[in-house]
Amino acid sequence: MSKILAIRFSKIENVAMTLPVVYSFAMQYPQHRITVLSNRAFAPFFEKMPENVSFYGVDLKEEHSGWLGLRWLYNDIKKEHFDAVADFHDVFRSRYLCWRLKLAGIKTAHIDRGVKGRKQLIRAKHKVLECQKSSFERFANVLQVLGYPVTLNFVSIFGTEKRDIACMKPLTGEKGDDKWIGIAPFAPKVGKIYPLFKQENVIKLLSGRMNTKIFLFGGGEKEIAVLNKWEHRYPNVISTAGKLTLDNELVLMSHLDVMLTMDSANMHVASLVNIPVVSIWGATHPYAGFAGWNQSPEHIIQADLPCRPCSLHGEKPCLRKDYACLQEITPEMVVERIENIIDLKN
Rank of each mutant, 00 (worst) to 15 (best):
K119H: 09
G191M: 05
R118E: 02
I181D: 07
A109Y: 11
K213D: 02
R209L: 15
I157N: 05
G114C: 03
K189C: 12
N228L: 10
P185Y: 10
I157M: 07
M210S: 15
L227F: 07
Q132K: 01
L196E: 08
V115K: 11
T160M: 13
N201P: 01
Q144V: 00
T212Q: 05
E231K: 09
L171S: 07
F186R: 04
G159C: 10
G176E: 09
K198G: 06
P195D: 09
E200G: 05
G208K: 14
C131V: 09
L152Y: 00
I122W: 04
L171Y: 10
I183D: 08
I193A: 00
I203F: 06
I224P: 04
K213E: 07
I183T: 05
E223S: 06
L227G: 11
E221A: 13
Y194W: 06
K162G: 11
G117H: 03
S207W: 04
F215P: 11
E231G: 03
L206Y: 08
I183M: 06
V155R: 15
R113Q: 12
V115P: 02
G218M: 04
A184Y: 12
K204F: 04
F217L: 14
I181R: 10
K189L: 12
K189N: 15
G220E: 06
V190C: 03
A184N: 08
K116M: 08
N236V: 03
Q199P: 00
L205A: 14
A124M: 05
